[in-house]
Design a protein around this nucleic acid. Structure first.
Lengths: 157, 157
DNA sequence: TCAGGACTCATACTAAAGTACCAAAATGCG
DNA sequence: CGCATTTTGGTACTTTAGTATGAGTCCTGA
């Protein structure tokens, strides 16, 4: 019976149990004295003893039984910028060169070919070449589709 | 004492408790008979009664008492896409008409003017008109800029 | 060293996007 | 109804995007 084990483990409550024991002994003696004086029915006396200690046992058990721990997992929604990290996996699949990726980044920011050429100090022809190669590698047919796919695959910063 | 309330509520266990009660009465009578025959010390008899019913009370309590539940809340972070809801505020500022907004939605999905016309059962001319008006209202100069701005302001689903 | 990939640039062309201007039909509201 | 707005569509034009092809340079790994 692990109950008595628990009882002895609760050393911090020894004082309480000692006091309780004293009350028990006193009650027992008082009941016995009353029995000797009154000499009434033994049934009533024993019944009182039984009921009293039954209730006492219940009370003691209630005090000692460990509450069972129920773990409740509550999902808390936390808003996180889901596109904080780019999808390196999808990016590698496309096998883009350094320049092509640079062009793609500017392209997705809404820049025209002429603007991209200006920012990268390249000719418009070069940008057109890169963009065309990009479309082949990304399997799209226009810059708007490229933007949509890039944002959907989360491969741009 | 809510314990007795629980006892009576457990109607399905009435048979068990009846049987238990019978055992109790029988035990009481047996102890009483033994006392009358042996006429030994009243202390031992009462002590046995007390210990027996104390333990019985503990056992009964353990069987009946509902374990008090200690709830442990564990917060679990769940990543939620931050752009779940569109920015109604920014959308209203643009003052787009119903058709213009429809066109914008398809535009941001990478569709060409011809494809948009096909899906909305309109002519290419109409789409061009809507797109041009869109650019004026959105203060952009190309569809790529419109896409970038729409996604940045979070005004598309 | 040399083959291949990446990067650059050019020309010529087609397709699509975008602008400007106009106008008719539909819609919604006081 | 009358008026403003939206929606639709057209023509004509310019600009940009996109394709095809070729070619020179640079760098790296076999």
């Amino acid at each position: 019976m692990s109950f008595f084990k628990d009882l002895f483990l609760k050393t911090r409550h020894f004082a309480l149990y000692g006091f309780l024991m004293a009350i028990l002994v006193f009650t027992l003696k008082w009941l016995q004295w009353k029995f000797l004086i009154m000499d009434n029915s033994i049934d009533i006396y024993v019944g009182l003893i039984a009921v009293f200690f039954l209730l006492l046992g219940v009370w003691v058990a209630k005090q000692l039984i460990k509450p069972s721990v129920e773990t409740v997992v509550i999902e808390k929604e936390v808003v996180v910028a889901s596109q904080s990290a780019i999808n390196e996996n999808e990016l590698q699949k496309l096998n883009l060169s350094t320049r092509e990726y640079e062009v793609l980044q500017l392209l997705t920011q809404g820049y025209s070919n002429a603007e991209i050429a200006e920012r990268l100090f390249l000719s418009l022809s070069t940008i057109k070449t890169h963009v065309s190669n990009l479309f082949v590698k990304m399997d799209v047919k226009s810059r708007t589709q490229a933007i949509e796919k890039a944002k959907r695959l989360n491969i741009i910063a």
